[in-house]
């Protein structure tokens, strides 16, 4: 579904990502981990073509289509959804109006149904977009948008940071349900090693200093928890 070949990225002439190769197939869940400042969020922004995140070299291919030069809105329309680490606040537009703008002909009943699934306080729908919401409520709103847009590739940038256990369970239950009922792939960016309790990834990648230094099955998360990321810097291949 998503193929990244030899990707080099820079922001204001500073090289961030160096030679990234990633292949996410249909119906696969991948986890991307790494120390702070290693370039995880940069990768997600590069895929969705945020301004000033320049591609120096390499290709991003989504469903056999090169998306290097497409704009963010076109990429979104192709079916890539990015859930933000820090969702923005917009004063002046209500949550409900915003959601109605996202998709034509979306019915209020459907929004209500999804909101109830996510246990969102229904009063929030009539409040300004994310304004004064708690961290958990903002993340739930991101998932609500995901359910409305129905994307093919979901990128979740630290969806579990700052959330209580109950909220994490609700979010991952819905994600699992969505994953099973729709043909899609998920890329989760996280620091949380307990994530394997909630979701079953096909592959785990470790990113350090702008490079994917290791890819393996989910058991490598146990090694991260035990030894930290330094363990993978020493190029131990047999795990």
């Amino acid at each position: 579904m998503l193929k990244i070949n030899k990707l080099y990225t820079s922001i204001k002439n500073k090289k961030i990502l160096k030679n990234i190769n990633l292949n996410i197939k249909n119906n696969e869940i991948h986890i991307l981990m790494g120390p702070n400042g290693s370039g995880k969020s940069t990768l997600s922004y590069t895929i969705t073509r945020k301004p000033y995140y320049n591609i120096i070299k390499g290709d991003i291919i989504f469903n056999k289509k090169k998306i290097n030069k497409l704009s963010s809105d076109k990429i979104s329309k192709l079916g890539i959804f990015l859930s933000f680490q820090n969702p923005i606040e917009i004063e002046g537009i209500t949550m409900l109006n915003f959601l109605k703008n996202l998709k034509k002909n979306i019915k209020y009943k459907k929004i209500l149904k999804y909101s109830k699934l996510l246990k969102i306080n229904l009063d929030n729908l009539h409040r300004f977009f994310n304004l004064g919401f708690s961290g958990g409520e903002k993340k739930k709103n991101e998932i609500l948008q995901l359910l409305i847009l129905k994307p093919k590739l979901i990128i979740l940038d630290e969806i579990d940071s700052g959330l209580d256990i109950d909220t994490i369970k609700i979010i991952f239950n819905i994600l699992n349900y969505y994953f099973l009922n729709n043909k899609c792939s998920i890329l989760i960016i996280t620091h949380n090693t307990n994530i394997i309790n909630y979701i079953n990834p096909n592959l785990v990648h470790i990113l350090n200093k702008g490079k994917i230094i290791f890819s393996g099955k989910k058991k490598i998360i146990n090694y991260i928890e035990k030894y930290g990321y330094k363990f993978f810097n020493k190029k131990r291949i047999c795990i």
């Binding site: 963010s72 990429i75 979104s76 329309k77 847009l149």
Partner: peptide
Amino acid sequence: YYLLSRGL
């Protein structure tokens, strides 16, 4: 950018 990433 946020709004663009939502398909608008």
